[in-house]
């Protein structure tokens, strides 16, 4: 039908850049912690030396999260209502308990890694990795369980979040390890070969992320009119910079190319560039995932 809306209320987008940053930080923390557990939980010995640093990076990234969330709330002093009036059907309550327990478990894990207590490091590592994955899974679920919000309302959402977390966490960790190498003694440095090996793990995540995004793209292309409209807006319209350029091209395709060419994937510079691109590119995904649906419905 031909026509135009000439008067309407203006709707706000209530979650924006800070919430996108929160999702990114939780993800980076989870991804970083996955690498930390490779040595002490999954028995990949070459990753043992960087376990403590990776775990501490994950803790630092996660400690910023409650600050962001509490500042973002309209009533910061009421944050404890999340626990005393907990409404168990709300994903935000699940997340509150996860964000509370996950850093504690990581802290204990770090302690036992520091003490080189294999038994308890493994036990705490298993617990913390379950909490790490759950914490980031819940951020996907928070967006997923809004039936009226497209494209968030898809069961792919938590997987997309987890994969993004995995790649951005490894990317962030590689950059932090590279910076750390300037500050520590030669013997404590992480070798470029190990960083290249981490980049290989990141590559698997990139491929899987592209696969998931391809599925999401297919679903929306063959979807309802609303889905196609939103797909246009994120792909070529208002959100083309966060989605197409920042996430797909900058965050996934270019690192993919760098990491499949043998010469660049073995060079430290190539690995660092790919790590930086992936870590920052995932923030593009967080932006359009949080804001596109609200922007679209801001006119209704």
């Amino acid at each position: 039908m031909e026509g135009q809306v000439i008067a309407n209320a203006f709707q706000n987008a209530y979650w924006g850049f800070p919430i996108a940053l929160y999702f990114w930080l939780v993800g980076a923390s989870a991804g970083s912690f996955v690498i930390s557990t490779l040595g002490w939980v999954f028995g990949v010995k070459k990753y043992k030396p960087l376990a403590l640093f990776a775990s501490n990076t994950a803790i630092v990234a996660l400690l910023i999260v409650p600050v962001l969330l509490i500042i973002d709330a309209g009533k910061p002093y009421r944050f404890f209502h999340l626990f005393i009036f907990a409404h168990w059907s709300a994903p935000m309550v699940w997340g509150s308990f996860l964000i509370l327990t996950y850093p504690i478990a990581m802290g204990f894990y770090s302690f036992f890694v520091h003490k080189e207590n294999q038994l308890w490091a493994r036990r705490l590592g298993i617990l913390a990795i379950v909490l790490a994955l759950s914490t980031h899974w819940y951020t996907g679920v928070v967006m997923q369980l809004n039936p009226a919000r497209l494209p968030n309302h898809t069961s792919v959402a938590p997987l997309l979040f987890l994969t993004g977390a995995y790649v951005s966490g490894i990317g962030l960790l590689i950059l932090c390890l590279w910076l750390r190498n300037f500050l520590v003694t030669v013997t404590a440095r992480v070798s470029p070969e190990l960083m290249a090996d981490m980049a290989r793990l990141m590559l698997y995540g990139i491929v899987f992320d592209l696969f998931l995004l391809g599925n999401e793209f297919l679903q929306m292309t063959y979807g309802t009119g609303e889905e196609r409209t939103i797909l246009y807006e994120v792909l070529l319209g208002v959100f083309r910079w966060p989605y197409l350029y920042l996430e797909i091209v900058w965050g996934l395709l270019l690192p993919l190319i760098i990491l499949v060419i043998p010469r660049t994937r073995r060079s430290l510079n190539g690995v660092l560039v790919a790590a930086f691109m992936t870590a920052t590119g995932v923030y593009g995904m967080r932006i359009w995932w949080v804001m596109a649906s609200q922007y679209y419905q801001g006119h209704f």
Partner: peptide, 20 residues
């Protein structure tokens, strides 16, 4: 007196009927 202003309800509402 219970609301913390997290705005989850506003994101969930399909009719944009809520505000802060």
């Amino acid at each position: 007196n219970r609301c913390i202003g997290c705005r989850a309800c506003m994101v969930a509402c399909p009719y944009n009927a809520r505000h802060l």
